[in-house]
């Protein structure tokens, strides 16, 4: 259960609340000090705006008094019903900013809208920032909620994502090689393949990396089935049916599953394949031990 301070709740979407909670857990789990956080980068894949609809609905009703939208009514009545900080619930980047504020992350950063691949881009940007010495460590991940009523309606209308819908956030801490005494895993690859033929690409990446396991994180059952067709006999973990579709959060949650598979199940190489609705394929590879 999330315990969000009331003031944060006025300014934070559901995705931002989840992001803050996950970021705090990641910082705690990695044992980061305040000083380390101050130098840390943060890069996040984020979804669409998610302001609390129970606050928005009275605004809408007051702005359409006779069943028709009236800009004058919006100005004179509707806006007065919105909490002044509601705009911050809508700003896409606040899923990152609230987490940065909560954890004191002051390093290089970037928020990327994600249809799946944006989250992988965030992980890639974080890895590059660390590799290029812009920061000694960086947090990267994704946060989103598909349970927002507008998002649900859009997804249903456009048939872009499979049920069950879900919500979630995950942040991972990336550091320079040699920084931690016992790293959980090494991130060997993080890239996006554009307009991918999913089954063929899955087959190609499996042939290239020979993973012990593949974590499949697709937005739709169709895409998931296509990816699994390309995996052959390779062990696969499906995420869509386990947590529901967490949109921008899903690839990052899948990376957590991959870490778990590497650490707890002792698998050497775990591949994460994430497919959004834009046809792009995210590819991340974790190694359990130093390559």
């Amino acid at each position: 259960m999330l315990t969000t301070p009331p003031r944060l709740r006025k300014m934070a979407s559901r995705a931002a609340e989840l992001s803050v909670a996950a970021c705090q857990r990641a910082v705690l789990d990695a044992g980061l000090s305040a000083g380390q956080c101050a130098d840390a980068g943060c890069f996040l894949g984020v979804g669409a705006s998610g302001g609390a609809f129970e606050e928005f609905e009275p605004f809408l009703a007051a702005s359409a008094p006779d069943g028709q939208f009236d800009p004058e009514a919006l100005a004179s009545r509707g806006l007065q019903l919105l909490n002044p900080l509601y705009a911050f619930q809508l700003m896409n980047n606040f899923a990152l900013c609230h987490a940065a504020i909560a954890c004191g992350l002051q390093g290089p950063n970037g928020a990327y809208f994600s249809r799946g691949s944006g989250t992988v881009h965030a992980v890639r940007a974080a890895a590059a920032a660390v590799a290029e010495g812009l920061c000694p460590l960086a947090l990267a991940g994704g946060a989103d909620s598909a349970l927002h009523p507008v998002t649900r309606a859009e997804l249903a209308r456009d048939g872009e994502a499979s049920e069950p819908l879900g919500e979630g956030a995950a942040w991972l801490v990336l550091g320079r090689d040699g920084m931690a005494e016992q790293p959980l895993a090494w991130l060997m690859e993080a890239q996006v393949v554009v307009d991918a033929r999913l089954a063929e690409e899955a087959e190609r990446w499996v042939a290239r990396f020979d993973p012990d396991c593949v974590v499949v994180a697709a937005w739709s059952a169709v895409a998931s089935a296509a990816l699994r067709r390309g995996l052959g006999a390779t062990l696969a973990i499906e995420t869509l049916t386990r947590w529901g579709n967490c949109l921008a959060g899903l690839p990052a949650l899948a990376l957590c599953v991959a870490l778990d598979a590497a650490v707890k199940a002792g698998l050497s190489r775990v591949l994460v394949l994430s497919a959004g609705v834009d046809g792009d394929l995210g590819v991340c590879l974790l190694h359990r031990s130093r390559p």
């Binding site: 669409a48 705006s49 609809f53 609905e57 009275p58 809408l60 009703a61 702005s63 359409a64 069943g67 028709q68 939208f69 919006l74 509707g78 809508l90 700003m91 896409n92 009523p149 649900r152 309606a153």
Partner: peptide, 20 residues
Amino acid sequence: LEHGFPEDFAPLLRNGRVDW
């Protein structure tokens, strides 16, 4: 930020609530 269209929500309102 996404451009929100309040005018699209108006026809969905029933007794002050959006009928999805």
